[in-house]
């Protein structure tokens, strides 16, 4: 009974995604069964669509910058949270995590109001990056929290005891030991930013991101198989990145010599 339940559940969850590659390689222009024949035409079309390439470049830049900033903030927040006591600590750490439960549309609309109405700035990739950092930092912080919790504080003290300064201790001991967490945080932030639609939709001016560009393609039924091809590539990429992140996290645990207490993923 339970098994049937799980199978139905998984089917609902993943069947639509499995349909992506099916239609991406189908030569018919209409998304319907029965299938026509095999083609790589839709992928070829992707290769020559210039607007798409621009959107991809925009997305990659935004995702990369977002990942670096979120991870740096995550390192700082996690280190402060795990190692130090200070007044207002719980409130500060709580606020960092709020975007996890905040509807993205709220973030998007309020940032739009601030940037356009109040500050009078133009929308740019910078505004999207700012918003993406906001939603990615909680994830980075959560991952790095685990890294710092698994790091025995006496390792850092031992390095200082043996004559190293605080900064060289961070470089020689802390950084190498939390590196798997940093890589995982980078990859996850990158993936979240790359896939994010609502915020990018509201805040992108003349420079659409990939998800926004895909959405705009949907208005042309002719292009739907192309979207399917693009979607296939994105799914494969996302799965790849998340797998790398998880491998990196597990390697970190092994290196720290602790038991796996259930992953972030």
């Amino acid at each position: 009974m339970l098994r049937a339940y799980v199978i139905v559940f998984l089917l609902f969850l993943y069947a639509p995604i499995l349909l992506l590659p099916v239609f991406a390689f189908n030569s018919g222009t209409v998304i319907a069964f029965p299938l026509d024949g095999f083609t790589l035409h839709w992928f070829a079309e992707l290769a020559v669509t210039k607007a798409l390439h621009e959107a991809v470049v925009n997305s990659l830049i935004i995702a990369a910058v977002t990942a670096v900033i979120s991870t740096a903030l995550g390192v700082a927040a996690a280190r402060a949270g795990v190692r130090y006591r200070f007044p207002g600590k719980a409130a500060a750490l709580g606020l960092i995590m709020v975007p996890l439960v905040l509807p993205e549309i709220i973030v998007a609309v309020s940032l739009l109001v601030v940037v356009v109405q109040i500050m009078g700035w133009d929308l740019s990739m910078g505004t999207i990056i700012a918003a993406h950092v906001l939603i990615c930092t909680p994830f980075a912080t959560a991952i790095l929290n685990a890294s710092f919790q698994n790091l025995d504080p006496s390792l850092e003290e031992a390095a200082v005891d043996l004559g190293e300064s605080r900064s060289s201790t961070f470089r020689l001991i802390t950084l190498p030991l939390i590196m798997p967490g940093i890589i995982a945080a980078l990859l996850i932030s990158f993936t979240i930013s790359l896939d994010e639609f609502i915020i990018a939709f509201f805040l992108s001016g003349s420079e659409p991101t990939l998800p926004v560009y895909i959405w705009s393609m949907l208005r042309f039924p002719r292009l739907i198989p192309v979207v399917m091809a693009l979607g296939t590539i994105l799914v494969v990429l996302s799965v790849l990145l998340l797998t790398l992140a998880e491998i990196s996290r597990r390697r970190g645990l092994r290196r720290a010599g602790v038991k796996d207490k259930g992953g972030f993923l």
């Binding site: 390095a159 043996l162 004559g163 290196r255």
Partner: peptide, 28 residues
């Protein structure tokens, strides 16, 4: 601590896990 003429053996030993035995011993 890094300028005191003391050295410490920690309860958890604090062996640097990403280094070899020789790198640990030679760290200071």
């Amino acid at each position: 601590a890094n300028q005191r003429p003391t050295n410490m053996v920690f309860q958890s030993y604090a062996i640097f896990p990403h280094m070899s035995v020789a790198e640990n011993v030679g760290f200071g």
